[in-house]
Design a binder for these strands. Structure first.
Lengths: 195, 195
DNA sequence: ACGAATCTACCTACTAGTTGGTAGGTAATT
DNA sequence: AATTACCTACCAACTAGTAGGTAGATTCGT
């Protein structure tokens, strides 16, 4: 099997938690070393530089999103249900406080100060997500299961922006319910005769 | 007049530029010292600690927003025009690259890692902006100049989230036009018979 | 089958540079 | 005389990253 020591995975998980909390400059190798019970230098064995670490983190984040969306689309073919499942996933994360923010949305906020190797991965995530949403909305509009008032691409971009902004608001208010409160009317406008 | 050496203002302006680029941990006193041609220690004369500096920066940001909105509302009483002016302001900032991001929206993304004195100011900004937008939308809905499909408060939160998310997307795509592209359909849904 | 070489995952100990912040001095203004 | 706005010269703590070593597992040549 492919199990080359799960320490590397532990490091990535800790790094994700720190990044979600405080961004790229908000954590150090020492912080990670402490929480996973290893020495600082040992992290350099797995990830020679901080750029390497965050780059593989973001790259894997995108890969997981791609496979996740692909699988989701196979199980849930209905466009309205897809959008509801997508926002529901984040609502769940925010309520759990398990992952109250999309790593890439957070890193996008500090894009100008990010090492270019990481910036390029963050941009790739935005392009993928917007492309996926455009496809879903286009399909829903064609079927008549979604009602749109602009081009699918524009609707998708606006939808994605609302989701990201709602994460920001939920964090600002310290209110986990804020995310759902914001997304409910947004979904209602897209999905006809929703309760 | 009230002009107690404009060095303090220069420091605040430089700090704002750095924060907008890379967040709270993304700049140092040394960075500011270099761009405004002063020694690092001299900044401590104006702002004893980094928390002091950023706290007055955010507090002033909120004050400016309050006076700006009040004045705007006196000159432009029409709710649809108010929303258009508000988004237009940010579209302008993003196109100029002069201030491509709301300081508070950016700081909200790293709220859990922020010193509490600053976090509280950021939250105050969100509450103010959401309150102001709620008032505008409520008034517009009452007059029939805005069409809403949820409670004014929910519409306001969704609108604010879309604006903040659109800033993120504009940054991610490196495309200044993305902001306007996202806000156009959002405004069109609120404003009846817009061209 | 068996010792040798290699590899993995960690360690201690260090480096050069940066961080926010302090002490104390100077020159000009009030 | 006091205040303001700056300065030089520090400091301890922390930053990412390196050098070099060790114990254990794996692989390889014979």
């Amino acid at each position: 099997m492919n199990k080359p020591s799960n320490t590397a995975d532990d490091i990535l998980a800790a790094a994700r938690t720190f990044i979600v909390a405080g961004g790229y400059d908000g954590f150090s190798y020492a912080d990670i070393a402490e929480v996973i019970g290893i020495r600082k230098a040992s992290i350099h064995h797995h990830f020679p530089s901080k750029v390497d670490l965050v780059q593989t983190l973001v790259r894997r984040y995108l890969e997981d999103a791609v496979t996740g969306m692909t699988e989701l689309e196979r199980n849930v073919p209905d466009p309205p249900a897809l959008l509801r499942t997508y926002t529901g996933f984040w609502a769940q994360c925010i309520e759990d406080a398990s992952r109250p923010f999309c790593v890439c949305a957070l890193l996008a906020s500090e894009l100008p100060a990010l090492p270019p190797e990481i910036a390029v991965e963050v941009r790739a995530y935005f392009r993928f997500l917007s492309g996926w949403l455009t496809g879903v909305i286009e399909r829903g509009a064609g079927q008549g299961t979604l009602t749109i008032s602009a081009a699918p691409r524009a609707e998708a971009e606006a939808f994605m922006a609302t989701v990201h902004g709602a994460m920001l608001s939920a964090r600002a208010y310290g209110d986990t319910a804020a995310f759902g409160m914001i997304l409910a009317p947004t979904l209602r406008k897209l999905i006809p005769e929703a309760d």
